[in-house]
């Protein structure tokens, strides 16, 4: 296996971006995806259900201590930070907000980088703050693959612009990112 997990950070403009991405990812896409999207602390995560209808993959809210499995897409519950432990299970914290956000992209990315090292793909998409930049740096430092949405292609360019400062491996429009993920998934299957 080349890659064991994908982490994605998305903020303003995220619903459209996720809708697009999940309509393109095929049913047999096996690499687990964990996404932090900045949402209201009072959200009941109904939008996950909405997104699920447009998706070929099974989207769900992560449970505490849940084991991360292939073929699944996970989101943190509203108002909690989501972390990944070394045994590849989820844990939550209600620490202070980071970059004005809880859940924070950096918190997920930094813990995921530790858990997966070079078996991780990190992606920063549309958004209007700088959350995700230092997390993406950690992923890069630990040998993971880093991808940022082309700011020209993003609904909000601030977050991708910020993440580009770390020198990611790829800067691509959303469609091309999805193509790349599909390619990685195929390589994963051919090199188990």
């Amino acid at each position: 296996m080349l890659y064991d997990a994908i982490v994605i950070g998305v903020s303003a403009g995220g619903i459209n971006a996720m809708k697009k991405m999940f309509s393109m990812l095929p049913k047999h896409f096996a690499i687990p995806i964990i996404i932090v999207s900045h949402i209201s602390a009072r959200s009941d995560n109904q939008w996950i259900r909405f997104l699920n209808e447009k998706s070929n993959l099974a989207l769900k809210e992560a449970d505490e201590k849940e084991i991360i499995e292939p073929g699944k897409v996970y989101f943190p519950p509203a108002n909690y930070h989501l972390l990944i432990e070394k045994d590849r299970t989820f844990s939550f914290t209600i620490d202070e907000k980071i970059n004005f956000a809880r859940p924070s992209i950096d918190v997920l990315f930094e813990s995921a980088a530790d858990a997966y090292k070079n078996k991780l793909i990190g992606i920063v998409l549309t958004g209007s703050n700088s959350d995700g930049t230092s997390g993406l740096k950690r992923i890069k430092d630990l040998g993971g693959l880093t991808i940022v949405q082309d700011p020209e292609d993003a609904e909000y360019d601030f977050m991708p612009e910020s993440a580009i400062s770390i020198g990611p491996d790829h800067i691509l429009p959303l469609e091309k990112i999805t193509d790349l993920l599909i390619k990685m998934n195929k390589q994963n299957i051919s090199k188990p």
């Binding site: 972390l83 990944i84 432990e85 844990s91 914290t93 620490d95 530790d114 858990a115």
Partner: peptide, 9 residues
């Protein structure tokens, strides 16, 4: 305690 959280702190 869960390690990821402790390490961050």
């Amino acid at each position: 305690y869960s390690e990821a959280h402790i390490k961050r702190r």
